[in-house]
């Protein structure tokens, strides 16, 4: 795991498959069978066309950094974590999602940097979707 805090996320019937998939080291998101949009964040309907005909689909786990910030010092449980990188990663499938970039020196992070999913898992089984530098580069 990375050295950043994990969390007790709220799992509900709309989001359960997403979190179950993360625990199996896969990134699954709903795709709308009506308009083909990938839905972010997961929910029971498509926010583009309001269809409820969604299908869970495995994502590539690849993306690029859309924007980021190096936070010098966090708050609360993040107080001792700094400096760390908060970022929006644009998934290859489209959505730009909030995450951390881990396993890279913060000053090496840059916009458009290729990244891959890191299923950041603690000893207690808690997991968050973070991203690390793509091994291809």
């Amino acid at each position: 795991m990375s050295f950043l805090p994990l969390a007790d996320v709220e799992v509900n019937n709309e989001t359960q498959p997403f979190w179950d998939a993360l625990r199996n080291n896969t990134l699954m998101l709903p795709r709308c069978t009506a308009c083909q949009s990938v839905v972010w964040y997961p929910r029971a309907h498509c926010p583009v066309c309001f269809s409820t005909q969604l299908q869970w689909e495995e994502m590539s786990g690849r993306g690029t950094v859309y924007s980021y910030s190096i936070v010098a010092k966090g708050n609360g449980r993040w107080k001792e974590s700094g400096p760390y990188v908060v970022a929006y990663v644009e998934l290859a499938e489209g959505p730009r999602i909030l995450t951390n970039i881990v396993g890279v020196a913060p000053t090496d992070v840059h916009i458009n940097m290729p990244v891959v999913a890191v299923f950041d898992t603690g000893d207690d089984g808690r997991v968050l979707l973070r991203f690390g530098a793509s091994p291809e580069i």
């Binding site: 950043l4 805090p5 994990l6 969390a7 996320v9 709220e10 799992v11 709309e14 989001t15 972010w40 964040y41 929910r43 910030s69 936070v71 966090g74 708050n75 993040w78 974590s81 760390y84 908060v86 999602i97 909030l98 995450t99 951390n100 968050l128 973070r130």
Partner: peptide, 14 residues
């Protein structure tokens, strides 16, 4: 609804 997808990454307001 967005909390579990945004609030656990140390995103301060700044």
């Amino acid at each position: 609804p967005e909390v579990s997808f945004e609030n656990f990454f140390g995103l301060s307001i700044v």
